[in-house]
Amino acid sequence: MTPRSAAVLLNCSSRSNRAASQRARLAELLKGSGLAAEILCAERGQHMGELARRAARGPYDMLVAGGGDGTMNTVAAAIVGTEKTMGVLPLGTVNHFAKYLGIPLTLEGAVRTLVEGRRVQIDVGEVNGRVFVNNSTLGIYPTIVRDREALRKRSGMNKWLAFGLATLGGIRRQEPIRLRLVLDEQEIHLNTPFVFVANNDFKLGDLDLARQGPLGSGELGVCVAHAESRLSMVKLLASAVAGRLQKASDFSILRTRELLVEAPQRRLHVAADGEVLKLSPPLRYRTRPSALRVIVPPSSDIRAGSVRREDPPDQRAALGG
């Protein structure tokens, strides 16, 4: 098979020695892989979305996202619904999407997957036209993400320490939001501090909220907290950390194909794959079945509920041979 062309998209704004060394190692691995790849960098002041959209209009067969889940989201949004294929280099902290697909977390293993892997088509989620590959959240979590990033920008604080402090601050300040949910002809009115909408599994980072079986094709998972007091929120958080959240009486787990969220606010903070957006309700969630082509390892045990179609063995994306 003739090697296909790939664009490898990286955020190159970091000038640290570690980042520079990582980019040099990646260039070396790509050169040795036989993959015809060009590294495209989003430099300081350039938005990754702009780079991804430009690459999507280019001659590349594959766009490879190098970064964390926010970068995965951005690249997926640029090529969803097209014939282009997405590759994954997990260079972030949590790497939820890469773990879900079974992508090796080492740079060597991830590059090898680009060459030896197989192509599958997976569902993506969408809220008011904005794509997400992992999940979307309302309530306290977007507040925590915003506060975490503000702390890091202000003080250069470690990401996990900033997350812990932001969580404590969020619990102290977050008030439940009044929502009306409509899903599968069911209507729910509630005051809630937290709504979670899943596209692939019920994990928020490495935290498994539901410990349930895989979502079916074209299906969204919805988790809703009914806790209205701060004490109830703390108890729910403790249950989540202990892995007992799915047994909590004030936590509901639902499945649906579409979700409508109405709220009295003019704008809501909504997180999509960890990126915080300001959206005007009503929020309309839906799935786009088989809308994204991705490369996974030949041995990946990715759950069949989210995979609509695979290339047969003789058409795998063996990019180098």
Rank of each mutant, 00 (worst) to 15 (best):
V115L: 11
R255D: 00
A98S: 08
L30R: 04
D311E: 15
E228S: 14
N135L: 09
L63S: 04
R57W: 10
P142R: 04
S136F: 08
R118C: 11
I144A: 04
Q46M: 14
R266Y: 06
S136A: 15
K99R: 15
L26V: 10
G129I: 08
R4Y: 14
A248D: 11
E50A: 10
G164V: 09
F251D: 09
G49Q: 06
L30Q: 08
F194W: 14
V224N: 00
V276K: 14
T192P: 10
I295L: 12
E28V: 09
P313A: 14
V270N: 12
S229E: 10
E275G: 08
G213C: 03
Q22F: 10
T192A: 12
L190H: 05
E228Y: 10
L26Q: 08
R288H: 07
R308W: 05
G216Q: 01
I140G: 00
R309T: 12
V296P: 13
K278N: 10
L237R: 07
M72F: 07
V120I: 15
A7H: 11
G32S: 14
M62Q: 02
L63E: 04
P312I: 04
S14E: 06
I144C: 03
S232N: 06
D250G: 13
S252D: 14
D184G: 05
E185P: 01
S21E: 15
G117R: 01
R308T: 00
N134W: 10
P312A: 00
Q22W: 10
A318E: 14
V307H: 09
V224F: 03
C41M: 03
A20I: 14
L260D: 03
K99M: 12
A98Y: 11
M72S: 01
L91F: 12
L91S: 08
S252F: 05
V222C: 02
F132P: 01
P298I: 05
Y60L: 10
I171A: 02
A225M: 07
G81R: 03
R15A: 08
C223H: 04
L268D: 03
A317R: 13
V120H: 09
P3V: 06
L179G: 02
I79K: 08
N73E: 13
R293N: 15
L9C: 05
